[in-house]
């Protein structure tokens, strides 16, 4: 098999994903953070309840779960590995930067899906009815890819100090949540907020989840899916291109 060929690199990306899961994801604190972070945010919101229905809140919770878990660890992997010099090891192996980035994306996608499925199950246990199961599944898969690409995009600045990157990514992630129709329904947003919401992939995912649980939606379902797909493609291409350029600066 040609090591530089597509399937050769795909196998290597999968090896990197397995390594990531083993080292960075299957860890007590990471799992606890993944489950509790969205839950606490959600509870905080529920306390100051503005008489929104549970189904609306759960949809938001699912949106947040996936967004926060899929972007929780991946921005720090490059800085960690740069610091530990394991990145130099990967760089001297027959694996492209694209495959390394893709491997990291696979790991965070799987992690995001796993935690989100737990959230969905919590919702179902709380008595929610799932109206469009297939749509939800498709939305979660697509959005997980999209958010993990965002996570890798946050890792682009070539610093090997993980806390810098974590700070930066929180700075970007939290505002994104507020403009994505999770706490405030899109229908109630002011025009400028709605304009911002257009640029957040989280908006379209939340809209899809809401459709899956409540059968109501703001955008047409197909538009949501298309938007997510376009964002995924765009972020993946951009993050791979940028990492290819900044990778040597980490050595």
């Amino acid at each position: 098999m040609n090591p530089a060929g597509f399937s050769g690199q795909m196998w290597r990306a999968w090896a990197i994903a397995k390594k990531d899961i083993r080292i960075y994801y299957i860890k007590g604190p990471v799992l606890i953070f993944g489950v509790f972070m969205p839950l606490f945010l959600f509870l905080a919101f529920l306390m100051g309840s503005r008489q929104l229905p549970l189904s609306f809140l759960i949809s938001g919770l699912v949106g947040m779960s996936l967004f926060f878990t899929a972007t929780a660890v991946s921005p720090a992997i490059f800085p960690w590995e740069g610091q530990a010099k394991t990145l130099e090891r990967l760089a001297s192996c027959p694996v492209t930067v694209e495959a390394i980035v893709f491997g990291d994306m696979i790991a965070s996608t799987l992690f995001g899906i796993g935690i989100t499925v737990i959230t969905v199950i919590i919702g179902l246990v709380l008595g929610l009815t799932l109206v469009h199961g297939i749509t939800l599944l498709a939305a979660i898969l697509l959005a997980a890819c999209c958010f993990s690409a965002i996570g890798m995009l946050l890792a682009v600045p070539p610093t090997n100090v993980p806390s810098n990157i974590m700070m930066l990514s929180s700075l970007i992630k939290f505002p994104l949540v507020f403009i994505s129709g999770i706490f405030i329904p899109l229908e109630q947003m002011p025009a400028w907020g709605l304009a911002l919401a257009f640029f957040s992939p989280l908006t379209y995912f939340t809209d899809l989840v809401r459709y899956a649980f409540t059968d109501t939606h703001y955008f047409p379902v197909l538009a949501d899916i298309t938007a997510l797909a376009v964002f995924t493609l765009m972020f993946s291409v951009v993050t791979m291109f940028l990492h290819k350029r900044t990778m040597p600066k980490r050595m």
Partner: peptide, 21 residues
């Protein structure tokens, strides 16, 4: 790079096995 790297091995200056593995 990939074809070249496939043919050689490297022991770098700083030891860099994954310590968690």
């Amino acid at each position: 790079p990939v074809l070249a790297k496939q043919e050689f091995g490297v022991v770098p200056e700083t030891s860099n096995a994954y310590t968690d593995l």
